[in-house]
Design a protein around this nucleic acid. Structure first.
Lengths: 200, 200
DNA sequence: GACAACCTACCTTTGGGTAGGTAGAATGCA
DNA sequence: TGCATTCTACCTACCCAAAGGTAGGTTGTC
């Protein structure tokens, strides 16, 4: 029966996600999680033998959340600008609001935090992150292409270049928001991105 | 006489800068520097009693470089687009080329690396970083204002918003370039930023 | 002799990780 | 049904390496 199964494993992943968002992969320890959950370090090693295993699980849960979110969107009913706005909002929500206080800006997104630590990550995690970022560029590019096809967006340069710009700016915007402890910075930057794409 | 003075202290700051750019403030140790310079850990503590002291020295050297670079620019002779292009190039050079191999993308800028580690930094370093970022926004905003006044730029939204966008995108662009080990990503993103500002 | 610039030798704390034990639930089978 | 076995999810008690940092000595130059 599922009743007997404990939810410790999910709790570990959940709290580790928060720790990665706030302190980074190399900035948290098994002890941090043990203290929070009221268990011993060795119990975490039982569920995740090495820290790399935990890091991979955290990122997989993150990707699952992103893909599930996208799967439920009714793309047909939205303008390209609305899609982008939704993307930006989700990015903020998953980072700043979901499970957390809306006014708490101490988190940055999982993918942003891990990309920042690129040179200090285990090889397997780098592969995951690289794959996700590749998919990510394609996803944003498809929204832009759509907007251009509908004559809603009049972009300059290549679609891929615009997608890269949006992804780079989003990562940077979360960093600045955290520093300034104000989501307004993030909102301001993302609004600019959408306005910059619209036909005048 | 200056001849007798050793240059160990400068070498420490220089190598620590590279370590921060590649592995972050919390990702390097005194031992890393000792090994590189062929001295003992305790000798580094002689010059910089605590790691925080070293971190502050590194950031001060970084800021000094930026301000010296700006002081030598003949702003009168440049268009706003040229100023921005120069800014982007300096940002890349100070990170990727100066002292390093031009094809080596394993570094991100000092300010970018430290902003990424915001929650793990000593208070004094946060103050430095915050001050620099404030100045930074003002500096970029002044270039944009100038471009608008000369009718070279037709920006959308506020000047400050555009400046924030540029700074955020630049930070993110360096992260992506490092991940992809290609400066082309950075160049592509910064080109888009300039094109986006120009009047059509 | 004083001082700068190192050194050796040490300390404490924390990191990831392991070995081996145990209580209790689930399962196999006579 | 009853009992033995196995498995899950923890535990205590370690290990070793590396971290930042300190105390106090040595060496060479003014």
């Amino acid at each position: 029966m599922a009743i007997t199964k404990t939810d410790t494993k999910e709790k570990i992943v959940s709290f580790a996600t928060q720790l990665i968002e706030t302190k980074g992969y190399n900035g948290f320890s098994y002890q941090d999680i043990a203290d929070e959950l009221g268990i011993k370090k060795a119990s975490i090693h039982y569920h995740f033998p090495s820290k790399e295993d935990l890091g991979i699980a955290v990122f997989e849960a993150f990707m699952k959340g992103v893909h599930e979110h996208i799967a439920q969107i009714d793309f047909e009913s939205l303008t390209a600008a609305e899609k982008l706005a939704g993307y930006f909002q989700y990015h903020a929500e998953v980072t700043l609001v979901k499970n957390h206080d809306a006014s708490d800006c101490s988190h940055i997104s999982c993918i942003g935090a891990l990309t920042s630590e690129w040179n200090n990550l285990p090889e397997k995690m780098r592969e995951q992150i690289d794959n996700f970022n590749n998919w990510h560029v394609g996803f944003v590019a498809s929204i832009i292409s759509d907007g251009v096809a509908k004559k809603e967006f009049c972009h300059v340069g290549s679609v891929e270049g615009q997608a890269l710009l949006i992804i780079a700016a989003t990562k940077g915007a979360l960093l600045l928001s955290r520093e300034k402890t104000s989501i307004e910075i993030y909102n301001q930057i993302t609004r600019q991105l959408i306005e910059g794409l619209k036909c005048k």
